[in-house]
């Protein structure tokens, strides 16, 4: 990895367009994500967030589209649901489709705090634990790009806070580029280096979060960024 010349961009799109049945869902999307950069994508429901993520993951079969799209071959997706195969145990789910990856699978499971649960069935895990397995399944492939589609949306508030800390820790250690799709403004500010806002299929905001590595929700600057982003999402407090 270190021997390779560091590419300037992990993700690069130019004038990306996607449409369903003649109606445009995304248009004129230009996104650059640097290697190791953590970008959050905010937007209301129906703004095209998931369509954009599916386009980046090449999961949009049969969708009309145009524009330039460069993403690394080695990318992983974390979905909102953990999407574990119920008939495979935890370790088998993590190493799904890989051969000889058991050792790496155990290491990553320990990193997400699930040591000793390797042979459990997915139904035996809590929602948070299932999502940690899904995260391990993505990270064991050492992706250059991690695409996460509201991965914590279905979790309770306390579990979500713990998952935020875990994700930050894992990203610091493994340095993938991340695009996190979310509708949670606090989550975006807590985790991301940069926040994009999507509205009606267009990017209307590209904000670098100038907070340090410690993100305290109570600081005035945090509140300022939150107010600004909420206003961009059409939720104004006056």
């Amino acid at each position: 990895m270190a021997s390779n010349a560091v590419p300037l961009k992990a993700v690069c799109t130019r004038d990306l367009y996607r449409g369903f049945a003649g109606r445009s869902v995304l248009s004129g999307i230009d996104i650059n994500i640097a290697p190791g950069e953590f970008v959050a994508l905010l937007g209301r429901s129906g703004s095209g967030k998931s369509t954009l993520l599916k386009a980046l993951a090449s999961l949009d079969h049969g969708v009309a589209g145009s524009g330039a799209l460069h993403v690394p071959d080695n990318l992983s997706v974390v979905f909102q649901d953990a999407r574990l195969l119920p008939w495979r145990n935890v370790l088998q789910n993590v190493t799904l489709g890989l051969t000889g990856a058991d050792a790496a699978g155990r290491v990553i499971l320990a990193e997400v705090g699930l040591q000793g649960r390797e042979s459990a069935w997915p139904v035996e895990l809590s929602g948070g634990e299932q999502q940690r397995v899904a995260l391990a399944r993505s990270l064991v492939r050492e992706p250059e790009l991690l695409l996460a589609d509201e991965p914590f949306g279905a979790l309770d508030a306390l579990t979500r806070i713990r998952m935020h800390a875990l994700l930050r820790e894992l990203c610091v250690r493994r340095r993938p580029s991340v695009l996190l799709v979310t509708h949670d403004v606090d989550e975006a500010i807590t985790l991301a280096d940069r926040v994009l806002v999507l509205e009606d299929g267009r990017l209307i905001e590209d904000l670098t979060i100038d907070l340090g590595p410690e993100r305290d929700h109570g600081t005035p600057r945090f509140g300022e960024i939150r107010r600004h982003l909420l206003a961009r999402l059409g939720v104004g407090f006056h």
């Binding site: 990318l75 992983s76 997706v77 649901d81 195969l85 489709g97």
Partner: peptide, 11 residues
């Protein structure tokens, strides 16, 4: 959803 998962994992 499992089919989609299998595609993202390049099975």
């Amino acid at each position: 959803r499992y089919v989609e998962l299998a595609e993202t994992l390049d099975l």
